[in-house]
C-alpha cells in the first residue's frame, strides 16, 4: 500500500476543526497553568502548613510521574468520586495542573529574587502583606520567568495530543477518525503533525513578541 495524499483534502474541515480544539485546549490549559502556577507558588512559599503540605506533595507526585498517567487519574478518578466531567474539561484540568506545577517551580525560584527593597518599600508605604505580594512582588517575579514559562506553554501545546486518549476531540483524534475511515495512517498523522508544527510556529512567534515587549518595557 503506497502513499496517497489526495484523500487528505477530503478531511480538511475535520482536521481544521480538530486543530481549533487543540488551540482551545492549549489556551484554556495554558491559562489554568499560569494562574494555577502562581497560586501554587504562593501557597508553597507563604501558605499555612495545612495547605502547604498537600500542595508540596501534589507537586512532588506530578513532577515525578508521566502526564498520561495523570490524565487517567483525573479522568477516571473524578468519575470514581462521582464527578462526571466532560472529556474536554478533564483534559484541560489534567494538562493545566501538570504544567501549573512546573510553572509554580519557576515562580517559586523567582519570588526570592525580587529585590527585598521592593517588599520593604511597599510595606513602608502602608501596603498590607497580601497587597505587597499581589501588586508588587508577584508581578515582578512572574515577568522574570516569562521566557521559561513560554517553553512550558510550547510543551503544553505538544502534550495536548495526549488528551485524545481520554476521548477529547482534538487534532490527534480527528486524524485518528479520518484514519479509521480511510486506513491511511501515514498520510493523516503526517497532516496532523504538519498542523501541530504550524500552531507551534505561531505560538513561538507570539511568545517572542511578548518577550520583546516585556524587555522593552523594563
Amino acid at each position: 500500500m503506497g502513499l496517497d495524499f489526495t484523500v487528505v483534502p477530503d478531511y480538511f474541515g475535520a482536521l481544521l476543526m480538530g486543530a481549533g480544539w487543540t488551540v482551545a485546549i492549549t489556551i484554556c490549559a495554558g491559562l489554568l497553568s499560569f494562574f494555577g502556577g502562581i497560586v501554587f507558588a504562593v501557597i508553597a512559599l507563604y501558605g499555612h502548613w495545612a495547605l502547604r503540605l498537600p500542595v508540596r506533595a501534589f507537586a512532588f507526585l506530578f513532577m515525578g510521574t508521566p502526564l498520561l498517567l495523570q490524565l487517567f487519574l483525573i479522568y477516571f478518578g473524578l468519575i470514581e468520586v462521582g464527578i462526571d466531567l466532560p472529556a474536554f474539561a478533564a483534559g484541560v484540568i489534567g494538562l493545566g495542573l501538570h504544567f501549573a506545577v512546573y510553572n509554580s517551580e519557576l515562580i517559586q525560584a523567582s519570588i526570592p529574587a525580587v529585590d527585598k527593597g521592593q517588599y520593604e518599600g511597599a510595606r513602608t508605604l502602608g501596603l498590607s502583606r497580601g497587597q505587597t505580594l499581589r501588586r508588587i512582588v508577584i508581578p515582578q517575579a512572574v515577568r522574570a520567568v516569562i521566557p521559561p514559562m513560554g517553553n512550558n506553554m510550547i510543551a503544553l501545546l505538544k502534550d495536548s495530543a495526549l488528551v485524545s486518549v481520554i476521548g477529547v476531540m482534538e487534532l490527534n483524534l480527528s486524524a485518528q477518525q479520518a484514519i479509521s475511515r480511510t486506513y491511511r495512517p501515514f498520510e493523516f498523522y503526517l497532516a496532523a503533525a504538519f498542523c501541530y508544527y504550524i500552531i507551534n510556529l505561531a505560538l513561538e512567534a507570539g511568545l517572542r513578541h511578548l518577550e520583546r515587549r516585556i524587555a522593552a518595557s523594563r
Binding site: 502513499l3 491511511r184 501515514f186 498523522y189 501541530y196
Partner: peptide
C-alpha cells in the same frame, strides 16, 4: 525543528501505524 515542533505521540503513531505503508 521538526522533531521538537511536533508531538512525540504523533511521531510514534506515524512510525508504528504509518510505517507499514512505506
Amino acid at each position: 525543528s521538526v522533531f521538537r515542533g511536533t508531538p512525540a505521540l504523533i511521531q510514534i503513531f506515524i512510525l508504528y501505524f504509518g510505517g507499514p505503508q512505506i
